[in-house]
């Protein structure tokens, strides 16, 4: 019995990178999330969709530690994280981007990605101030790593430009790159193609696919249905803070509840 249970736990650990159990989030009297239960399998792209105000971004903020949930458990790589602060969660390998671009616009493109490497290569305040040789070595390593990421997202040429001088499409890519620099196992993308034109959208989509190929699990909030259907292995639909459907794209697409949520009921 115990053996069997252990086996089950291990199996779920191997298969699921993120497990959300009975999570609720209330702002005063407003229930933004109600009884959320879902899992994210390792190595897939999972999309969360739903009408405006359905609670998608709130869910992201709860998972990444910006709002502690009112109730429930969130397990990342088998460990409970719902009580942790955002920076702790980030250093455990759960990274995110933001719906409205949140780049460090007082820095260059390269420096933005270098901040992403923050948790991976450490050095103390005193060692840094006295510029011990090891600090210089680590700094070079960070720069090298950041350059590799800029190459991956195709922004290497613009490494020395101020981040806020880039067009929106590239700013969104840079945010993804900065997220990748934290070496995440799970990357949460909040509307990565919002506001982008068709070409930019295609570039971003193929980048997200490449990220999955690298073995990084992607959790995606997006309104562009073409992109969602095209990229996702699994889709979850939220409405008024509740999950109303979950499954592969074809199944969700034809779910009457989903159609009702998007087009409005007839009653």
């Amino acid at each position: 019995m115990v053996q069997e249970l252990k086996f089950q736990v291990r199996e779920s650990l191997e298969k699921n990178i993120l497990e959300v159990e009975q999570v609720a989030m209330a702002f005063g009297g407003l229930m933004a999330l109600i009884n959320q239960n879902f899992r994210v399998k390792k190595g897939i792209i999972k999309a969360i969709i739903g009408p405006n105000g359905a609670g998608k971004t709130t869910l992201f903020n709860v998972i990444t530690g910006f709002f502690p949930p009112t109730e429930g458990t969130i397990r990342f790589k088998g460990q409970a994280i719902e009580h942790l602060k955002a920076h702790d969660i980030a250093s455990r390998g759960l990274s995110r981007t933001f719906q409205t671009v949140e780049l460090f616009d007082n820095m260059t493109v390269l420096e933005n990605v270098m901040v992403g490497c923050h948790t991976r290569i450490r050095s103390s305040f005193l060692a840094t101030g006295f510029k011990l040789p090891q600090v210089k070595r680590k700094e070079n390593k960070i720069k090298e790593k950041a350059m590799d990421i800029l190459e991956f997202i195709n922004l290497k040429d613009k490494f020395n430009e101020p981040a806020d001088s880039l067009p929106l499409g590239e700013q969104k890519l840079l945010e993804i790159g900065r997220g990748l620099a934290t070496q995440p196992d799970l990357l949460c993308l909040d509307e990565p193609v919002a506001g982008l034109n068709e070409t930019e959208t295609q570039v971003a989509s193929s980048l997200i696919r490449l990220i999955r190929e690298k073995g990084i699990t992607v959790l995606l909030v997006e309104h562009d249905m073409k992109v969602v259907m095209d990229l996702s292995d699994e889709i979850m639909v939220l409405n008024y803070g509740e999950k109303i459907a979950e499954g592969p794209p074809e199944q969700v697409q034809n779910d009457p509840k989903v159609i009702e949520a998007y087009l409005g009921g007839e009653d």
Partner: peptide, 21 residues
Amino acid sequence: SRTGRALRAIHSSETAASAMG
């Protein structure tokens, strides 16, 4: 250094800085 970048990141956006760890 890394510390200086972290400080400037905090100045620019505390939200994004904490999301970077």
